[in-house]
Design a binder for these strands. Structure first.
Length: 489
RNA sequence: CGGGGCGUAGCGCAGCCCGGUUAGCGCGCCUGCCUUGGGAGCAGGAGGCCGCAGGUUCAAAUCCUGCCGCCCCGACCA
C-alpha cells in the first residue's frame, strides 16, 4: 500500500517507546476495553473488556471453589462504628473512604462508609456465626465492587470504584490461618502464571507496606513492560486483630473460649491493566489465549465473484470450530481485510484465520499468530488439532517471554551509588540486601522512589533470610533479607 | 494536595494572540456506485448550547472574572 504505511497504521496509538502511559490509555480505549465516564475516577468497562474480566474471574473463581471456599455477598455499606473498631484499619483507610450522610432528605444518625474493603462488616457478621470450634473454618469469598476515594486514578490500575474478589476466612489456630494465607497466595501465583501468562514473585510485604489491620501481608509482584512493578494480588494474615475487636470467639475442645485467627485476600480489575502492560506491543493488545474473549478471529478474503461462496464457507468453518476454541467470524462487508487485521490485532486476538478463494481451492487457510505475527498455512482438515496446539503454544510462549523480560530486567548492584543510578536510568527490579530497618526503607524510597516490593520465599513459603556476610545496600550493616526493589504502580 | 497541559461534531484537531459573513478540517457515521490476500476510491448527505456561569462590547469560540471537568508528572494506595 502506501509508502508511509507505518505512520498511517500507528496513527491512533501512541508509540509505547515514546510515552508508555499514553500508550496504555490509547490501548484501553482503542481496543474498547473501557472508557471514561461522567463520574470522575470511574470507568465504564465495555463489553469486550468485561468479557476479558469475566474469563479471568471465572478462572479464579474455579480455583477459589476448588480450594474449599464458597461465595457469598455482604452489604455495600459499613456503619462508621464498625469501621472504627480496628484502629489501624480505619487509620489506614480513612483518607479514601466515601461516606453516605443522608437517606433521602434526612441526615443519618450514623454515617455509612461505602466499603473500601469488607473486613469490618464481615467480621461483625462472623461474630454471630461462630460459636464452636465445630463452626470453623469459615471459608468465604465475595465478588463485589468497592470504593476508594483516590486522588489520582488510572483506567483499571486505580479507579474510584473497582471490582474484585475478597476472601475472608476464620480459623481455629494461628498455624491454620498462616497456611490459608499462603495457600491463597500460591493460588494467585498459579492463576496469574497459568491464565494471565504473567510471571509473578510471591513474597512477604514489609511492615510499612502491609495492609492496615493485618499481622502480615503477602503479595504477588509482577513486572510491567516498562519495568515498573505491579502488586497483582495480596493475601493477609489478619491474626486476631479483628476477631478481638469484633469478638469473634469460639469454644474450643478444651472448653476455653478463644478468638479466631483470620485471613483475607483479594485481586481486582487491576489485573486487566496488568495483562495489558505485561503483553501489549506497538500494534495493540496481546491477550493470553486462555482468557481472550475471542481466541480465533476468522476473516474472509472476499472478492466480487467469489464473495458469497467464501462467506458461506467461512461461516460453516466457524460453526464447525465452535467446540474447538472461542471463535468469531468477522464477515462485515464494509471493512477490507487489511482493516480487520489491524482492528483485531489492536484487540489482541491470539490467532487470526484467513480464508480466501485460493485457499478454498487448495483446501487450506492461513493462520497468523498475534504474538509473533508468524504466518502458518494449514490444511482445513487439521484445524481441529492445530488451533488448540497453537493456542497452547502462544500461552506458553507469552509466559516465557514475559519471564525472560522480567529476569533480564532484574539486576544486582554492588553499592548504593549504583543502586541509585540503575533505578534512575534502567528499568526493572533490583535484588539487593536490606538490614530490615523501616527507616532505611523509607530513606531509600524518598531518595530513589523505589520501594521494597517483597521479600522472596523459599519452597516452604518462608521468607528467605540473607546469606551470612551479606550487608545492607544502604547502611552496610548485616542484611536481614535480600529483597526486590522497584518503582511501582 | 502541589506542578503542567487541555475542554470547539462520536473521535482527533484548527480557528482564539489581533472580537466582525452561514465555525472549519481529517477520521468515523448515513445513501449510492465501485472495491476487498495488511487500515481502498468517487459522489452526495447528516451531525455543534465552541465545558458552565457571569462580565466587557453594537457584536464573544475569540477579551476579562469565577467555577467545573479531564489527562499527565510528583506526595498516599488493590
Amino acid at each position: 500500500m502506501a509508502k508511509n504505511e507505518k505512520s498511517e497504521m500507528l496513527k491512533d496509538i501512541t508509540p509505547k517507546s515514546e510515552d508508555f502511559s499514553q500508550w496504555y490509555i490509547d490501548l484501553v480505549r482503542k481496543a474498547e476495553l473501557a472508557d471514561y465516564t461522567a463520574m470522575k475516577g470511574c470507568m465504564v468497562i465495555k463489553p469486550y473488556g468485561f468479557a476479558l474480566w469475566e474469563n479471568m474471574r471465572d478462572a479464579l473463581d474455579r480455583r477459589i471453589k476448588e480450594t474449599g471456599h464458597q461465595n457469598a455477598y455482604f452489604p455495600l455499606f459499613v456503619p462508621e462504628s464498625l469501621l472504627k473498631k480496628e484502629a489501624s484499619h480505619i487509620e489506614g483507610f480513612a483518607p479514601e473512604v466515601a461516606w453516605v450522610t443522608h437517606g433521602g432528605n434526612d441526615l443519618l444518625e450514623e454515617r455509612l462508609a461505602i466499603r473500601p474493603t469488607s473486613e469490618a462488616i464481615i467480621c461483625s457478621i462472623y461474630a454471630n456465626w461462630v460459636q464452636s470450634y465445630r463452626d470453623l473454618p469459615i471459608l468465604i469469598n465475595q465478588w463485589a465492587n468497592v470504593v476508594r476515594w483516590e486522588k489520582v486514578t488510572r483506567l483499571f490500575l486505580r479507579t474510584t470504584e473497582f471490582l474484585w474478589q475478597e476472601g475472608h476466612t476464620c480459623h481455629r489456630t494461628m498455624e491454620e490461618a498462616q497456611e490459608e494465607t499462603i495457600k491463597m497466595l500460591r493460588v494467585y501465583q498459579e492463576f496469574a502464571e497459568t491464565e494471565l501468562a504473567m510471571p509473578v514473585i510471591p513474597g512477604l510485604k514489609t511492615e510499612s507496606e502491609k495492609f492496615p489491620g493485618a499481622l502480615t501481608t503477602w503479595s504477588i509482584e509482577a513486572m510491567m513492560s516498562d519495568g515498573k512493578a505491579l502488586q497483582a494480588g495480596t493475601s493477609h494474615n489478619l491474626g486476631q486483630h479483628f476477631s478481638q475487636m469484633f469478638e469473634i470467639m469460639f469454644e474450643d475442645e478444651d472448653h476455653i473460649r478463644k478468638h479466631v485467627w483470620q485471613t483475607s485476600w483479594g485481586v481486582s480489575t487491576r489485573l486487566v491493566g496488568g495483562v495489558i502492560m505485561t503483553h501489549g506491543d506497538e500494534k495493540g493488545l496481546i491477550l493470553p489465549p486462555r482468557i481472550a474473549p475471542y481466541q480465533v478471529v476468522l476473516v474472509p478474503i472476499v472478492q466480487a465473484a467469489t464473495k458469497d461462496m467464501v462467506i458461506a464457507r467461512i461461516r460453516e468453518l466457524g460453526a464447525s470450530l465452535k467446540g474447538v476454541a472461542r471463535i468469531t467470524v468477522d464477515d462485515r462487508e464494509q471493512y477490507s481485510p487489511g482493516w480487520k487485521f489491524n482492528q483485531w490485532e489492536m484487540k489482541g486476538v491470539p490467532l487470526r484465520l484467513e480464508l480466501g478463494p485460493k485457499d478454498i481451492e487448495k483446501g487450506q487457510c492461513v493462520l497468523v499468530r498475534r504474538d509473533t505475527r508468524e504466518k502458518i498455512f494449514c490444511p482445513l482438515g487439521e484445524l481441529e488439532t492445530r488451533i488448540p496446539a497453537l493456542l497452547a503454544q502462544i500461552q506458553t510462549d507469552m509466559l516465557e517471554r514475559a519471564r525472560k523480560f522480567r529476569d533480564d530486567n532484574t539486576r544486582t548492584v554492588k553499592d548504593y551509588e549504583e543502586f541509585k543510578r540503575v533505578i534512575e536510568n534502567e528499568r526493572g527490579f533490583i535484588f539487593a540486601p536490606w538490614c530490615g530497618d523501616a527507616d532505611v526503607e523509607k530513606e531509600i524510597k524518598d531518595e530513589t522512589k523505589a520501594t521494597i516490593r517483597c521479600i522472596p520465599l523459599d519452597d516452604n513459603s518462608e521468607p528467605i533470610p540473607a546469606a551470612p556476610g551479606k550487608v545492607c545496600i544502604k547502611t552496610g550493616r548485616p542484611a536481614k533479607y535480600e529483597v526486590y526493589f522497584g518503582r511501582a504502580y
